[in-house]
Amino acid sequence: MSLFTQPIGLTHYLVVGAILFAAGVVCMVTKRNAIGVLMGIELVLNGANLNFVAFANPALRADPGRAVAWMDGHMIALFVIVLAAAEAAVALAIVLSFYHNHASVDVDEADELKG
């Protein structure tokens, strides 16, 4: 019950971020569908992003009196989001072109360098 009455600290965010990160890693390792692997990567990026944003919050860090958030954390989170979009576009293009060539999205079959 104390969870509902205590204010939230940095640890809470870090735990959620860790769970997302680990889930993403497991997803990347176990999925055979290339798009499933891609989803795992998105989860990992989100876990990391959560940490950046949490650390940027002045209320959660030892800096009493500071009213403005550290923009560095937000900025990195933004860059990660934008890069994730780019990464997804490229990865999907690769998956689709692999699918058209091999009629499959199974990453286990993508073991040759020839197109």
Binding site: P7, L14, V15, I19, V25, V29, A59, L60, P64
Partner: peptide, 25 residues
């Protein structure tokens, strides 16, 4: 792999006492 990673991450997240609650007034 995931479990080990989670363990490491949780360990480090929970290791700093200052992070447990808000510091800013």
């Amino acid at each position: 792999v995931g479990g080990c990673l989670l363990a490491v991450l949780l360990r480090s997240a929970l290791s700093v006492d200052d992070w447990a609650g808000p510091v800013s007034a």
